[in-house]
Design a protein around this nucleic acid. Structure first.
Length: 280
DNA sequence: CTCCTGTCCTGCCGGC
DNA sequence: TGCCGGCAGGACAGGA
């Protein structure tokens, strides 16, 4: 499922394909995804896409009309580029087609339909209801130990739940939450407000490190961020703990035969993976 | 406020 | 083999 690094990689691919291009036509195959498609979507013909950027897990495409198109990939969303002259083979769950005047097509495919598309005035993007409450970007300066310590103060919720809270910090999904806590050596069941200052510092560094490494892996494993089939942004990861229940964890002194290796628990109806030896 | 649960949706997998 | 229940999960809405 796309988390921040995947969304970042998709953005870079879309930027290459779409920045500076004019939209010829927007084709919609249904009424909407998680929310209805905005009325203005089909009237974007002639608009020029200025750039493609990202805020949290949202893809932002500012246009020369003063509007910005907002895209979210949800759980199962994919973007597929069909270059000019290439044959477009329609697939099940192709919900939105962006056809450019230069012949390039971008297809938004999303089986589970947890994704969304919206349009908002570019000047007010941060005021949009989806953005107004969001915490800082994990890779920017505003997200530091002082900030996180302040946000965690007094919180009784589990630390894993807290770092997935978009009001605290954006972009950390279920996979990277487990990965970051493993790297920081912190038990995911610890109460957020009970973390000591050095642990908060380790956690900030770990969140940054796992996200950066994944972005790097995404960028380097794809040619121009586009796979040969045109799909953007998905790449092979090597998780340390995610999905590895019972397996020994890398770089840890635990004896998997004795400790059961990596444990799987459920927090907030989401799977969490951790090593009870390394993570305290 | 903070915390917790329900909701959306389809593909996939295990059990019978 | 086929059916079916259960699970997976981002993130909001709304209730306690």
């Amino acid at each position: 499922m796309p988390e921040l690094p995947e969304v970042e990689t998709v953005c870079r691919g879309l930027e290459k394909a779409l920045a500076g291009q004019k939209i010829a036509e927007v084709r919609l195959n249904r009424k909407g995804l998680r929310i209805p498609f905005p009325a203005g979507l089909k009237r974007l013909g002639g608009a020029k896409i200025l750039s493609v950027g990202r805020r949290a897990k949202y893809i932002l495409m500012p246009l020369d009309t003063g509007q910005t198109v907002i895209l979210h990939l949800g759980m199962s969303g994919r973007m597929v580029i069909t270059p000019e002259g290439a044959h477009y083979a329609p697939e099940k769950h192709d919900h939105m087609l962006l056809r450019m005047k230069n012949g390039t097509q971008v297809t938004f495919n999303d089986p589970r339909r947890f994704g969304l598309v919206d349009i908002t005035p570019t000047n007010d993007v941060e005021k949009h209801r989806l953005f107004s409450h969001l915490g800082p970007e994990p890779l920017e300066k505003a997200f530091d130990a002082d900030f996180l310590a302040e946000k965690l103060k007094g919180r009784k919720t589990d630390i894993k739940i807290a770092i997935m809270d978009q009001k605290i910090v954006v972009g950390v999904g279920n996979i990277y939450a487990s990965e970051a806590l493993f790297r920081a050596g912190i038990d995911p069941r610890r109460k957020a407000g009970a973390l000591k200052r050095p642990e908060v510092e380790k956690l900030v560094a770990a969140i940054r490190a796992v996200l950066k490494a994944a972005i790097k892996a995404g960028g380097s494993s794809l040619r121009d961020y586009v796979q040969t089939d045109g799909e953007l942004g998905y790449f092979q990861h090597r998780w340390a703990v995610y999905g590895k229940e019972g397996k020994p964890c890398k770089g840890c002194t635990c004896d998997a035969a004795k400790t059961g290796g990596i444990h799987r628990i459920v927090q907030g109806a989401r799977a969490t993976f951790f090593c009870p030896v390394k993570q305290k």
